[in-house]
Amino acid sequence: MTLEQIIFLIIAVVILLASLFVVTAPKMIHAALWLILALAGVAVIFVLLQAPFFAVVQVIVYIGAIAVLFIFAVMLTRKAMQDTGSQLNRYSILAAVICIMIFGALTGMLLSWGGSATLLESGALPADSIADLGVALTDPNGFLLPFEVASILLLAALIGAIYIGRDRSSGEGEQ
């Protein structure tokens, strides 16, 4: 086993355990902290794949912004410090059955695919992959349309958030 594979296995275990704790942690804030660990693990996977740009973006966007906002939101709730009562509701068995079915279906599909057993040829990485990414995102023959559609989606979400967040009880034009 190479060093890379050992690191990958360790990180994979960390990500899986952290993800498990995200859903089982009794305190909401602990779930958010475990989520940060899982996201950091994914950043390490990106580094192992020689994609430093994605690793850095993963840290900036997911850990630096999204996870921090999660914690922020959780701290604003009343039950930030404690969480009592059962974590399961009456649909838990149904949910478990559906999850197992989906997991089984996905596993079956991946096993029958066979592509996961063969190693990819390690092709030469482009010298400047970031420049290629930038060109691809703004090239009409590349991903220009999906990129712009995603931007419009985010803009819509932004406007929606402002609309919900506005205080309508006070008069117009007030801050």
Binding site: P52, V56, V57, I63, G64, V68, I130
Partner: peptide
Amino acid sequence: INVGALYIIAVGSIGTLGIIFAGYASN
């Protein structure tokens, strides 16, 4: 690294996390 400038921002956000941890965990 070829993403040095972004890396600085990314690592800086980890310091923010430290401050949030401190604020939350101090009770």
